[in-house]
Design a binder for these strands. Structure first.
Lengths: 152, 152
DNA sequence: GCATTCAATACTACATCGGTATACAATTCT
DNA sequence: AGAATTGTATACCGATGTAGTATTGAATGC
């Protein structure tokens, strides 16, 4: 499955919206309505995004949230990490091994390499890039095109 | 976290071992001892690997498991998928949307693109490639080097 | 000072995952 | 044929983590 949690998915969805609105602010309730994500859940996600300084919040009347940087400067890696913590394919990937097999495992120390590549892909894809992936046009990347060149 | 489950991790560890042994057979109990993965858990993993036809099993005395193909021809993507099912970053990624937001979500149809890239990285890395990642030398890929070229 | 809006904390239900136990079927060797 | 060896199948349990909810508090601006 190799999956990204739903909260992180929501996070990206929300960030993407804020990107299109920028620099306007958007209240939490509006965000919930627009994205169809339940309000209390939005609250939880927003906290992560604020803590990670991906969005700026303002309280009081006409308050709300605002994307901290241009969409092109926010990577999916950051967005996911903001919600779910450091990205790591396995426990081995994140160096400080919690894995009790670590010593006998002859794969230890190899995962980080694989991890680095996947990470880099996510780091190289920004919120703005998402727009260039056409709706329902599955397999066409953007600034990753050069990265793909030797493959396709 | 973007994580790969522990069972899949074990699967890769085991496949890797079988690769080094090939074409010799290895009994389940030996596998458990060598990898330090609990026997009942090995049982579970082996079933997946057999079903996916990544390993060949033989019963009776002197039976055991054998890697079905040369290690260079077994990708991490296959190995992970064998244990955990189809790889998808989000529910959106796998086309047949279970996501009830799908219709209103303006990100639907964009995930598959991202997904495809990550997938391709995993498809391009084989069991044999793992050996070329030096122990505790975090960031050095192998046949993916050309893929990295435009990045580093 | 009052309405509006975000912040923080704690809690619950549920699913998934890792791990275990047990009974069964197939093959080989003698 | 029969015993020993080895994989197969099913069902179960418990811990963990995730998504979602509720409630109360604090800041801002008019």
């Amino acid at each position: 499955m190799l999956k990204v949690g739903r909260l992180a998915d929501y996070g990206i969805l929300i960030l993407h919206h804020l990107g299109r609105m920028r620099p306007a602010r958007l209240a939490m309730e509006s965000i919930a309505e627009i994205t169809h994500v339940p309000l209390p859940t939005v609250r939880k996600v927003m906290k992560f995004l604020v803590d990670a300084e991906l969005v700026i919040s303002k309280r009081g009347p006409n308050g709300g949230y605002q994307l901290a940087r241009p969409p092109a400067q926010v990577s999916l890696a950051e967005a996911i990490a903001a919600v779910e913590g450091p990205l790591a394919l396995t426990e081995c990937s994140s160096a400080d091994g919690q894995c009790e097999l670590h010593d006998q495992c002859d794969l230890a120390g190899r995962w980080p390499g694989v991890n680095a590549i996947v990470l880099r892909v996510l780091e190289r894809t920004s919120l703005a890039d998402l727009d260039r992936f056409g709706r329902h046009e599955p397999h066409v990347p953007p600034p990753l095109r050069d990265l793909m060149a030797p493959i396709r």
